[in-house]
Design a protein around this nucleic acid. Structure first.
Lengths: 239, 239
DNA sequence: GCCAGTACAAGAGCACCGCTCTCGTTTGTT
DNA sequence: AACAAACGAGAGCGGTGCTCTTGTACTGGC
C-alpha cells in the first residue's frame, strides 16, 4: 500500500506530505479563504509552480486538507468513544464522543471552518471526501443503535401526533446506513429522523459557537455544549 | 432621517446604494470569498479606487452586505409570521416563520453563506450587525413566549432528570431577551435552553442542506425540513 | 553502460486582486 | 469670489492563482 518502490516515488510521497503539513500549519494561522498556495510553497522551500506537480490546483490542495481534517476529527471522536471502559454505558460513550468533537473543533477552528463552513471550492464536494466525512456520524449511529438494541427506552421512536410519518424523508439515510453496516433501521424511521436532527444540532451548535453567533447569548460555551449534548442524548432515548 | 440636504449628499446615498446593489447582484453569482470589489466597481461604471470613497475596504463592503442580508432574511421571516391570520395558532406561526427562513436561504445561498458560513473578515463581527442578526430569533422567541403565555404545555419547561439545571449557561440569553423586550424568562431556564437548541437545529439543518452535507442522506430536503420544524415545535411545547 | 523518455524545480509572465497615492475637477461653505 | 472638502480617474505596489518554457536529474529498456 504505502510501499514506495523507487526513490522518486518515495520523494514524491514525502514532498506531498510536506506540502500538506505546511498547508495544515498555515490553517492554524489563517482561514481557508486566505490560505495561499504560494505561501505554502515558500514554507516548504519551493517555488509556487513546483507545487503544481503535486496538486493540480489550489482547490485540489484544499480538498486534500479537507480530507485530512475530516480524518483527524473522526479519529479524535472514535478514540474518545473507544476510551470509555463500560461499553454498555451508552450515555457516557455519547458524551465522550460529543465532547471530543467539540474539543477538536475548538482547537482547530480553521479546519472546522474548512469542512463545516461555507464550501470555498465549487458546490459539489468531491467523492473522495464522503467516507472520511461520515466517520463521526457513523460512530454516533453505532452508539445509538447499541443503546436501543440493549433495550433503551423507545420514547424517541414514536413520532409526535402532529408530525407525519417520516419514512419518506429518511429513506435515503436508512439506505446509507444499511450500506455501511449491518444495521437495519427500516422499522425505526422516527429514530433515524431524530438522529439526523441531533446531528444537525451538534454541528449547528458548534458552528454558532465558532462563528461567533452565540456571542452575547452564551458565555459559558463549554457548559452550554455539555447541557445540549445531555439533552440530545435524552431525546434519542439513551436512558 | 433619510432626508438628503445637498445634491452631493443625495448622490452619495444613491451611489452607495448602487454599489450595495451591485454587490448583492454579484453575490447571486459567486460566493462571498470570490466577491471582488473591482468587479463591483466595474458593474457600477466606476474605477476601483473610487469605491473606496464609499467603503473603506472590501471587508467594510462585505459588512454592509451582511447587514443587508440579515435584514432581508429578518424581513421575510417576520412577514411570514405576520401573514398568519389566527394569531393564537402558534404552531402555524412557528411553521410559517421557519418555512420562510428556509425559503429565503435556499433562494439566496451565497447571502446565507455570507451570514451563517465561515466569517470571511476577522473573527469579531462588528457591533452594527448585532441587531439585524437577531431579527429571526427574536421573532421566534416571541412566538414561543406567546404560546406559553397562552397556556401551552409546559413539558419543555422541565429538564430531564439526568441534566443539570441550565440556569447558569442561559443567564446571558435571558438577559439578552430582557434587554430587547419586556419578556422575563428567568423562571423558565429550561425553555430558554430548549429555544437555544432549537435555534441551533434550524440553522444547523439549513447549513447542512446548503453546504451539501445532507447529500446522500436526504433527498427530499423540503420535506425533511418540514418534519424537523414540526418536531422542534413539539419539543418547545407549542401544542 | 548508454540513451531515450520522463518527472522535476525554477523562472518569467499573464491576468486579476486589494489597496494607496496623486492629480485635476466638481461641489458646498464662508 | 475664495477656500476647503469631496470626488473620480489613473498609475502603481505587492500579492494571488495559474501557465509555459527551460534546463536538469532520475528511470527503465536496450
Amino acid at each position: 500500500m504505502t510501499v514506495a518502490r523507487t526513490a522518486r516515488e518515495r520523494a514524491r510521497q514525502e514532498i506531498t506530505a510536506e506540502i500538506l503539513a505546511a498547508g495544515r500549519a498555515q490553517l492554524r494561522r489563517v482561514g481557508p479563504g486566505e490560505l495561499s498556495l504560494r505561501a505554502v510553497a515558500r514554507d516548504v522551500g519551493m517555488v509556487s509552480s513546483a507545487v503544481y506537480r503535486y496538486f493540480a490546483s489550489r482547490d485540489e490542495l484544499l480538498n486534500a486538507l479537507i480530507i485530512a481534517a475530516y480524518d483527524e476529527l473522526g479519529e479524535a471522536a472514535e478514540a474518545a468513544d473507544d476510551a470509555v471502559q463500560d461499553r454498555d454505558d451508552h450515555v457516557a460513550r455519547w458524551m465522550a464522543t460529543c465532547r471530543a468533537t467539540r474539543e477538536w473543533s475548538v482547537a482547530h477552528p480553521h479546519d472546522y471552518a474548512l469542512i463545516y463552513g461555507s464550501p470555498v471550492p465549487g458546490y459539489a464536494a468531491p467523492q473522495d471526501t464522503v467516507v472520511p466525512a461520515t466517520r463521526v456520524i457513523v460512530r454516533l449511529v453505532e452508539i445509538i443503535v447499541a443503546a436501543h438494541a440493549a433495550g433503551s427506552t423507545t420514547a424517541a421512536a414514536m413520532p409526535p401526533a402532529s408530525a407525519a410519518d417520516p419514512s419518506g424523508v429518511v429513506a435515503d439515510a436508512i439506505a446509507f446506513i444499511a450500506e455501511r453496516s449491518d444495521v437495519d433501521l427500516e422499522t425505526l424511521p422516527e429514530l433515524v429522523m431524530r438522529t439526523l436532527m441531533v446531528w444537525s444540532t451538534i454541528f449547528g451548535t458548534l458552528s454558532f459557537e465558532l462563528f461567533g453567533h452565540l456571542k452575547g447569548s452564551v458565555s459559558d460555551l463549554e457548559g452550554y455544549f455539555e447541557q445540549t449534548a445531555l439533552r440530545l442524548a435524552g431525546d434519542l432515548g439513551l436512558a
